[in-house]
Design a protein around this nucleic acid. Structure first.
Lengths: 319, 319
DNA sequence: ATAGGGTATGAAACGCGTTTCATAGCAAGG
DNA sequence: CCTTGCTATGAAACGCGTTTCATACCCTAT
């Protein structure tokens, strides 16, 4: 394939001039510009992007590390990320980590080796130190509501959202409250756990291990929880549930088995996914699309800062 | 940052030897290998990946053009793609096209300019000619069940699946059959339309425009269709519906309004998404995860071939 | 008339790892 | 003793666009 030097020769100019034409530099006479364009046309020339990457030292690529993609939480975030990346003329490279530290490391290495100009970590498996260690190689933003001093985080305030959900249930008269947690977001899960415990303490109720359901990510998990719920000797009267997906599975299965929502058990989902509206689920809306867009904004600046996005209660008929 | 020449100097060897160490070439004595490794350590050396890309002429990156990501059809495909990419040590670059021909073109240009070694097009906005034109620059695989002679396609046989669905309804005694179509997959939609028309002809029923619902992609769309359905003077007794998501929305809304599924209207979804099980939807299962994996397999070979994946009826309680 | 400043252009260096080719030592085969 | 054929190693070329720096012309301001 023809390269820039071939074009220069063909057009009778220097490579510098060809480069100027390619980059719309003003100091090129119309005459030479035309000659260069003609030569490019004749030779079927196009730029080798890797040479550009190498010489410019940037790729206009943003890496995104995500555990898996077919989950509405992440795919909604990704949608926001992709929309904003389009606006800012970035492309995205995708690292599916499956929560493997080693895969996450690959994403970090890609930053170090300049494969990507910046990195977004949607959910973390490795420790803060590991992330911190790579900050010198480029901007990293983590989608987590932590106030880590050295690493920029952009997310919804999961802690406050969960606390708000708890208070909402309490205000509705519930004292026996359980909750579901996904394995997916270590930190976020911890925050929710914290909020849960604190509010329990506030109403002076004990923490009951059998009212905490782990590994809740999908509709099926919700169904599973419904069954576990029914086999409990003593049942909570309210549940905060990881996500609307899980809440939907719970509601469908529970109602199939004759448990009434919200009469027998009140449930509160998170996200405000379309399925929540469809199933008349009260939920806490998380602006994930916006968070996604913000992540890209932050990571494209030299010095990303943290940001917390607000949530909003959407009252429907499940509480 | 230190480069390979610095390392060579520090270790007292040639750059070639350093390169050999980096690439595990056998012709390096243990002694020099250690010297090189020591030098790399001391200088904090790591390879610049863009230089590798440039000199090797490949990037181990596969481009994926997809209209949008937060839709289970695409995110399931992507999940399969990502899983297989991991196995084959490829990374993915993501082109969110929103069905804009111009964005799709960017993905094709990325192939031409060697940003990616191969390209996967999950749904096409531009014509075959446009795609064909870029084949000389690298392997392209389209996720479409077309038997285009010049462009490899890997997908489910949407035509046969839809025909099968029609026959299933017919065999169940239905004569008045409508269907929903998403805007998303031009070709696939056309295939479904074809299958629909042919089967209607077969049972000698007329094509009724008001029994065809367009733009059906999400749960909300399903709800909308349910409302449109109810406002029909004459209603079909069966519907084939774009996807389980849409079918779910339809079922929930219809039942809320007092229409019984399947007594009043039988519905058949596609995909066998978890939501189908949750809502007891009869559906045609499409092996999207496998298709995704296959797409990567195909695109990583020099000469990709086409493949069609089988579907499977999952009988539940909506027909 | 001259200094200053913008316009225009090209040679050469730069970013950096890989690969080809030449060279040389050394052991096995004949 | 000589030819093969490895093993080892390095110089130089290669992939290719960008950027710096030097040069030169021309116009305006002093």
């Amino acid at each position: 394939m023809a390269n820039i030097r071939d074009v220069a020769k063909q057009a009778g100019v220097s490579v510098t001039t060809v480069s100027r034409v390619l980059n719309d530099h003003p100091y090129v006479t119309e005459e030479k510009r035309l000659a260069v364009e003609k030569a490019m046309e004749e030779l079927g020339y196009y730029q080798n992007i890797n040479a550009i990457h190498l010489s410019k030292g940037e790729t206009r690529l943003i890496g995104v590390a995500v555990p898996f993609i077919n989950h509405s939480y992440f795919s909604t975030l990704l949608n926001g990320i992709a929309d904003q990346a389009l606006v800012r003329d970035y492309n995205l490279v995708f690292y599916q980590t499956n929560y493997q530290e080693q895969e996450e490391r690959k994403a970090l290495e890609a930053l170090k080796r300049k494969q990507v100009d910046g990195l977004l970590i949607l959910s973390r498996a490795s420790g803060w130190e590991a992330v911190d260690e790579y900050q010198e190689f480029g901007p990293i933003v983590v989608c987590e509501s932590s106030n880590h001093t050295r690493i920029p985080c952009v997310s919804v305030d999961h802690y406050e959202a969960f606390r708000f959900g708890m208070r909402y249930m309490i205000q509705k008269g519930h004292r026996h409250i359980g909750y579901c947690i996904g394995r997916m977001n270590g930190t976020n899960s911890n925050l929710r756990e914290m909020a849960y415990c604190e509010e329990l303490e506030f109403i002076e109720e004990p923490y009951r291990k059998d009212w905490v359901f782990n590994n809740c990510l999908t509709i099926e998990d919700g169904k599973r929880v419904a069954n576990e719920y029914m086999s409990l000797e003593e049942r909570p009267s309210a549940l905060l549930i990881t996500s609307d997906q899980v809440a939907a599975g719970f509601r469908m299965e529970a109602e199939k088995q004759g448990i009434r929502v919200p009469a027998d058990v009140a449930i509160l989902g998170f996200d405000n996914h379309p399925i929540a509206e469809a199933l008349d689920l009260t939920t806490i809306e998380l602006p994930l699309h916006e968070v996604g867009m913000s992540l890209v904004e932050k990571v494209s600046s030299k010095n990303p800062t943290s940001a917390i996005y607000p949530f909003e209660l959407v009252e429907r008929g499940s509480v």
